[in-house]
Amino acid sequence: MLPTKRNAKHNSVREVEGSFPIHFHYTAGISTEKFFLGLKEKKILGNTCATCNFTYLPPKIFCEDCFAELGNDTYKEVPQTGILESYTEIYYDFRGDKLETPYFLALIKVDETDTMFYHKLIDTENPKIGMKVSAIWNDDRKGSIHDLNGFKGI
């Protein structure tokens, strides 16, 4: 269950307030930087381990299965369509605050890939596992996961 927010003012002798102000810039790395730059150009880039005949989306610089390095020549643009494998309607944000407008997150098997792609499901009235979906782009693209608005049922 969701943690209940404590309304009562607690006895100040019983507890001392504190917080951690922690900030990062997380390094994208070779494969994710390529992937984000691809999104900016309306391209979805995956890469393939030829040995395992397995295509990763997002791309990786190594194959999780055989551990071989996946070099520059392994990247390719994958189709902008796929199959809806799972979805969830989100009613609360990451803080646990109720959303005024719930939205859908989904796992999509993009065509010609072998992995699950996690993104939003948008403008889809009756989502069903196995339905075909297509990528919808943001007009204002900056090289981020949000360059894609999400996937829409077709």
Binding site: F24, Y26, A28, T32, P58, E85, S86, Y87, T88, I90, Y91, Y92, D93, F94, G96, L105, A106, L107, Y118, H119, K120, I129, S144, I145, H146
Partner: peptide
Amino acid sequence: DPLYARQFDAIYHSAGALEKRMYTS
């Protein structure tokens, strides 16, 4: 994961929900 999954700002149970739907269906 900060680069992908965290970017969607959903309650963390979203991952459990996706898995439940996969498992039950």
